[in-house]
Simulated assay, not measured.
Amino acid sequence: MRNEYGSVPWLEVIAPLMPQVLAADWSHEVIGRDWMIQTYLDGVPAPEHLGTYPRTAWPAFFRQMGAIARSVHDVRGPCFGPVGGPGYGTWSEAVLASLEEIAADLDGVGLDAGDVRKVAALAAYDRAVLDEVTEPGLLTGGLWTVH
């Protein structure tokens, strides 16, 4: 949620499509957890309505989703990593740090992180390939029909 909140200024390119943040609090003093209040957007979630359209109309919907994703991915930033930080100087550093966090989270709940560690080792070994990406860009994983 904090990363979502921190990304709002970077998402100006699609601001008309997004709810407005009315309030946010990370102090845990009000309800004992992070919270954010946003405006309500009219509409029907795609999983509830997309199936009522003929399949021939679906490509236009998914082209629009692709255009929105492209506009987000065209946003450039000052560093690699989560919007809320920490920031990294290279893409490989950001990827490796993320994989380390995922492995630690798995360890923390008693799950096997071996596969994640294998991926991290491969990423570390071939980090030069990752570092072919030299310009930080905003990536979104939230543009799918259930959102």
Rank of each mutant, 00 (worst) to 15 (best):
S27P: 03
S27K: 00
H28M: 05
H28C: 09
E29T: 13
I31R: 00
R33E: 11
R33C: 13
R33G: 14
W35F: 15
M36W: 00
I37L: 15
I37W: 10
I37G: 01
T39K: 03
T39S: 12
Y40E: 09
Y40T: 08
Y40N: 09
L41E: 05
G43T: 08
G43I: 10
V44F: 03
V44A: 11
P45F: 12
P45C: 06
P47H: 09
H49N: 06
L50Q: 05
G51W: 13
Y53C: 09
Y53M: 12
P54V: 04
R55Y: 03
R55E: 13
R55A: 12
R55S: 10
T56W: 14
A57G: 09
A57D: 14
F62N: 02
R63Y: 15
A67P: 01
R70G: 01
V72P: 12
H73Y: 09
H73S: 05
R76I: 03
G77V: 12
C79M: 04
C79K: 14
F80C: 01
F80W: 04
G81F: 01
P82V: 10
V83K: 08
G84R: 15
G85F: 02
P86I: 04
G87I: 13
G89Q: 08
T90G: 10
T90P: 06
T90A: 06
T90L: 06
E93F: 06
E93K: 00
E93S: 01
L96P: 07
A97K: 02
A97M: 10
A97Y: 12
S98N: 14
E101Y: 04
E101C: 08
E101V: 11
A104G: 07
D107E: 11
G108C: 02
G108K: 05
L111I: 02
L111Y: 15
D112K: 14
A113N: 03
G114V: 06
D115H: 14
D115Q: 13
V116N: 03
V116F: 08
V116I: 15
V116H: 03
R117G: 00
R117M: 06
V119N: 04
V119T: 13
A120E: 01
A120I: 08
A121F: 05
A121Y: 09
A123R: 13
A124C: 05
